[in-house]
């Protein structure tokens, strides 16, 4: 195919795309208008029905909890797949280590204090924020997913401060695997616990508490968010730990 033909093909495809795009655009509801009844109904009833003031979490973990189980397992499968693909096979050796990387007595450039001090000082606050987000899905705009990712970044900060070996010690793969499986499994188990009582899967069977917006309110919503937080934190730490192992261990200290 000559470049002239290619340009024609592109022009026709682009014209088609623009036409379809404008057609779809003309059919959109006006800016700020919401046509469906679903959102309004949820907003009217969600707080009274679940005692959760974080209505988005109430939708994610209660009304549409089954969707969220699926999403949870997307991340679970990604982390599991990563572990399987990047595992070290028996008899597999790294070929591309330069002699300098292999030398035991090479001089490693130390991490500067300007990086070390702030990153280590941030670890505590970051853990606190992550924990707060994962355990306040029922009251505020937050949730296990966001909290979990932020918890995982606390481990990244330990790595950034130049302490790769401390990072590895703090996040042993076996423990992370266990935490990830526990988080994902507990979500499913909460759903099954409802079934065991003759209720629909993932039905909110726990007491909802007295006051809407209290941390102890909203029954299974808070519980599921917490488990999601554990799962997500473990999955992200696992994924990034695997990648670090692949790329940077050689530079960070001979093993």
């Amino acid at each position: 195919m000559t470049s002239r033909q290619r340009r024609w093909l592109f022009a026709i495809a682009a014209a088609g795309l623009v036409a379809c795009y404008l057609w779809a655009f003309a059919g959109l509801p006006g800016f700020g208008n919401y046509p469906g009844p679903y959102g309004q109904e949820i907003l009217k009833h969600a707080i009274a029905q679940t005692n959760a003031t974080g209505v988005v979490s109430a939708i994610n973990f209660d009304y549409r909890g089954f969707d969220t189980v699926g999403e949870e397992f997307i991340l679970f499968t990604a982390a599991a797949g990563m572990s399987v693909v990047l595992r070290k096979l028996r008899g597999e050796h790294e070929r591309d280590r330069s002699p300098y990387d292999r030398a035991r007595n090479r001089e490693l450039p130390p991490t500067s204090d300007a990086i070390r001090v702030p990153t280590l000082a941030l670890v505590g606050p970051v853990v606190l924020i992550g924990w707060w987000l994962a355990s306040h899905a029922q009251t505020d705009p937050s949730g296990g997913f966001q909290g979990g990712v932020i918890l995982a970044t606390a481990f990244m900060l330990v790595y950034l401060s130049g302490e790769f070996l401390a990072f590895r010690r703090l996040s042993p793969v076996a423990l992370l695997d266990g935490a990830e499986a526990l988080g994902a499994g507990a979500f499913v188990a909460v759903g099954l616990a409802a079934v065991a009582q003759g209720l629909p899967y993932l039905d909110n069977f726990l007491p909802l508490g007295q006051v809407p917006g209290a941390v102890s309110s909203s029954g299974t919503i808070a519980l599921i968010s917490f488990f999601v937080g554990i799962e997500v934190a473990a999955a992200f730490t696992l994924i990034i730990g695997e990648l670090l192992e692949q790329t940077l261990l050689v530079r960070a200290g001979g093993r």
């Binding site: 995982a152 970044t153 992200f236 994924i239 692949q246 790329t247």
Partner: peptide, 23 residues
């Protein structure tokens, strides 16, 4: 809620994974 998710994934997790892949 979406802002928080975007912040954690788009501004932190994705760039980190991409940087590691590039390395």
């Amino acid at each position: 809620d979406v802002a928080l998710s975007e912040l954690t994934v788009g501004a932190v997790a994705l760039p980190l994974i991409l940087l590691l892949a590039i390395a």
